[in-house]
């Protein structure tokens, strides 16, 4: 499993990007994107922003509040995109590229998946990656919750204006995101 995580400002400027692999079940935390996939990732995420705008206001029956966690919102080729919208309309997008076996492309046994994908082998059929499996959603959500906490601390900085496209440069923030990734994905 490889992940590509980006934070978008309300005006669609990428403010922070982090790329990592799964650390679950023997994963080494290193992403395994091919060169083509890596260069496609920013485009996939940007196109997913349209989907975010469609779903972020919630269904018409909602009581006027919607959860920040929008779950799995978009799929392009072998990439699955999950989203979290903060109160101030900053979007966290996580692109997931499951291993080939988990997509049914390989064929070897599937018992080394990450928490975010491996457990679907028991609930879903045939060990295929399922972005809306409860275990996957929960793992991604926990990751987002941790990032969100670090993000709120970042925006509390009076000199940081997310709306102006200020890029997050803090190595501490990066370390926090990496720690959350290691813990949950």
């Amino acid at each position: 499993m490889s992940y590509y995580f980006t934070i978008f400002s309300p005006t669609d400027t990428p403010l922070f990007t982090h790329e990592f692999g799964t650390s679950r079940s023997g994963g080494d935390g290193v992403p395994h994107f091919t060169t083509a996939e890596r260069s496609m990732a920013p485009f996939v995420l940007h196109s997913a922003l349209d989907m975010v705008e469609e779903v972020q206001w919630g269904p018409s029956t909602s009581s006027g509040s919607a959860p920040m966690y929008l779950k799995h919102i978009d799929k392009y080729a072998n990439n699955f995109v999950s989203c979290w919208v903060t109160g101030a309309n900053v979007r966290f997008l996580l692109l997931t590229r499951p291993r080939d076996e988990a997509l049914g492309l390989g064929g070897s046994g599937n018992n080394r998946g990450s928490l975010a994908g491996g457990r679907t082998g028991m609930t879903g059929g045939g060990g295929l990656y399922n972005p809306s499996a409860p275990a996957t959603e929960e793992a991604v959500k926990n990751f987002f919750v941790e990032v969100y906490e670090a993000w709120v601390k970042t925006v509390m900085n009076p000199f940081f204006h997310a709306g102006n496209g200020d890029v997050v440069k803090s190595p501490v923030f990066k370390a926090r995101v990496a720690a959350a990734a290691k813990k949950y994905l």
């Binding site: 509040s65 919607a66 903060t86 919750v145």
Partner: peptide, 15 residues
């Protein structure tokens, strides 16, 4: 918003 609710059920106003 982070303080008002349990962070695991974070919600934001949409109306």
């Amino acid at each position: 918003l982070t303080r008002s609710a349990n962070p695991l059920s974070s919600i934001r106003p949409t109306r």
